[in-house]
Amino acid sequence: MSFLEVLYFIVPSALLYATPLILTGIGALFSERAGVIGLGVEGLMIVGAFTGIYINLEYYADFGKNVIWLALLAALLAGAVFSLIIAVAAVTFRADQTVTGVAVNMLAAAITVFLVKLIYGKGQTDMVSAPLQRFEIPYLSDIPFLGPLLFQNVYSTTIIALIVAVGAWFVLYKMPFGLRIRSVGEHPMAADTMGINVAKMRYIGVMISGALAGVGGASLAMTSSGDFSGSTVAGQGFIAIAAMIFGKWHPLGTLGAALFFGLAQTLSIGGGNIPFVQDIPSVILQVLPYVLTILALAGFIGKAVAPKASGVPYIKGKR
């Protein structure tokens, strides 16, 4: 393969792997910025993946190719509703948030496979008839070099993910709502004193994480696997959390980290055909996202600092 061919193969593929990571990572970011640990996004992704595939299979006859939009919307709603479990436990019942996240991940994995067996009588669904399709962006795809690199093989969800990431930055840093979200994650008591409803903001943060992780999961299932089983999501939610940390709890940082982790996954899976990369043992590329996250936290790649009140239940009147 020539260098250009390699690039034309790697970049679209990296964007494909990065898409669910961007969506879910930004979701986890909203939750953590509001002061609730985002460990449950793995489970929320699973719920989204299941919902997306289920709707796609059941309503393909009615909507044809357009069923993917219904599927994404349903995944968004399902993720948001399921995330209420986290919100109720973590915010209202003051449960340990890490434990809640772990429990929600277990619950989501079990419930979805249970439902698949209940509905389809077997451990995994059929392949969907309408997976997400790559498409060409007119005009832009005619640009030399950049056209084939970025605009000839695009998934609609990739574009959505990029918009979400930039939009998240705008919302969190340029709008009063974003300031409120961040304030209840940094210093809830100060926010409360200023008349911000801490519990409400935290509920909203968690539900945004559920909605985005749901879409992320559905986009993953409708592109990479095409069906749903217990191993469809397989840790992508945790990589998304890694991307959020590596991106230092900032939307654009998360976007960059997710793109980078997408690249690492591309190379570890498809690296066998690429010169230079095929000489690197794939295990090194597989563990790269995780090791880099630890290094980022250890301060070797600039210090990553979590929102101050993330993980701490807010109890009125307690100092």
Binding site: A89, A95, V99, A103, L107, A110, V113, K117
Partner: peptide, 22 residues
């Protein structure tokens, strides 16, 4: 009955224990 029902039960138990405050 799918065996996943037990994983659901275990997850629910954890959620209740973690929400011990309530």
């Amino acid at each position: 009955i799918p065996e996943e029902i037990v994983s659901i039960i275990i997850a629910v138990i954890i959620l209740f224990v973690a929400s011990g405050y309530i």
